[in-house]
Design a protein around this nucleic acid. Structure first.
Lengths: 194, 194
DNA sequence: AAAAATATTTGCCATTTGGCAAATAATGAA
DNA sequence: TTCATTATTTGCCAAATGGCAAATATTTTT
């Protein structure tokens, strides 16, 4: 069955955080919807209440917002085998202040709020698994951001290259520069100097 | 009773995240231990498995570590009305890579691993409340760190002053400079220029 | 109070990064 | 393919920050 292959990554990922029997796995698979996003398309937008959570099967997202100066800032990138959502807005059902955008073509498995509620009500371990995933993802964000402050821009760029070796030259400079906390021209010069 | 006053802040804080009846509140109060830490003392240390969680009733902590160059880096500050713990190490029971230190005299309410297990087993809402608290704290850390990259050092310092108006001149320059991602001499010059 | 130890400030200069505009390159539309 | 649009690079110079050592200031110990 195609479905098995399609969902394999998701199920394996979930199983890292807790046990699930076949019946539960089947239910999860039935609740997930396949979604393809083209490069540049938005998964969710600032001002709207997020109604879905995405598991990134393939591709890369970025989360971005506009700061008080009006600059577009890339807050972080999310790569495959991770969930993506503005978790605060999603949980509290308040409009998001961020955009979640596909920076390359993405294959997603999407869960609606209702599906997640069903899973939570039906699968006793579900909330525990989701909490572990959420916590891990947030800790990783903190631990990635925190050292950046102490590093110079070149080091931050090199670390980005390590993490996303194929991405740096395929996305607009502006995405990356604002993530690294530098201007586009500085990033251009750093690229040249390496 | 003294205990009531002592625990008020904690209980009110918990009640923000879920409901608790009086019996449950009493149990929580019995499980909490008062602990006073003097400025400079450590609540937990790198290399050790954290065995306690602190609720900061009064005072301020910082979380710090040594980077690959051997510099001591202040990762963030935690102020009163918050829980403090290296959550990853605590949950996974692995040695921490961070120090948690009182930057001024602190009054804490401390829960041991065993107490937390008891509370989790006895109070049905406990895990939910703790998960909400954890998630909120982590989201706040991300949202504080993230914009810092795009701001210059003076702005970061001014924001720190806003958040901790009385702290800046009472702690070593090194704590603050490494948090802001600048050298001590740069911070000294920024202070002078304001 | 004096001496010692520690922390902070300052001078001097190097390096990094920013700001802006023009030049060049890459992309997309006609 | 050519033109128009958009993105990136580059030159020029200014501003921010770093590095290091010496000078002060502050704190701690005797």
């Amino acid at each position: 069955m195609t479905t098995f292959v399609t969902m394999d990554k998701l199920i394996n990922y979930l199983l890292e955080f807790g046990q699930l029997n076949q019946q539960q796995i089947d239910l999860i698979q039935r609740k997930a919807q396949v979604l393809e996003l083209k490069k540049g398309e938005y998964f969710s937008e600032a001002g709207k209440i997020p109604k879905q959570v995405a598991f990134i099967k393939e591709g890369i997202f970025r989360v971005c917002y506009y700061n008080s100066k009006g600059d577009e800032i890339t807050k972080y990138f999310i790569d495959e085998n991770n969930f993506a959502v503005d978790i605060k807005s999603f949980n509290q059902k308040i409009p998001s202040s961020e955009y979640v955008q596909a920076v390359i073509d993405c294959s997603l498995l999407v869960f609606s709020t209702e599906s997640l509620n069903d899973l939570s009500a039906t699968i006793i371990q579900w909330d525990g698994i989701i909490n572990k995933i959420t916590e891990k993802a947030l800790i990783e964000k903190v631990n990635k951001l925190s050292p950046m402050l102490a590093e110079d821009a070149t080091t931050r760029y090199l670390k980005f290259l390590e993490k996303f070796p194929n991405l740096a030259n395929r996305i607009p400079l502006s995405y990356l520069a604002s993530y690294l906390g530098i201007t586009q021209s500085s990033l251009s010069r750093i690229r040249k100097s390496i």
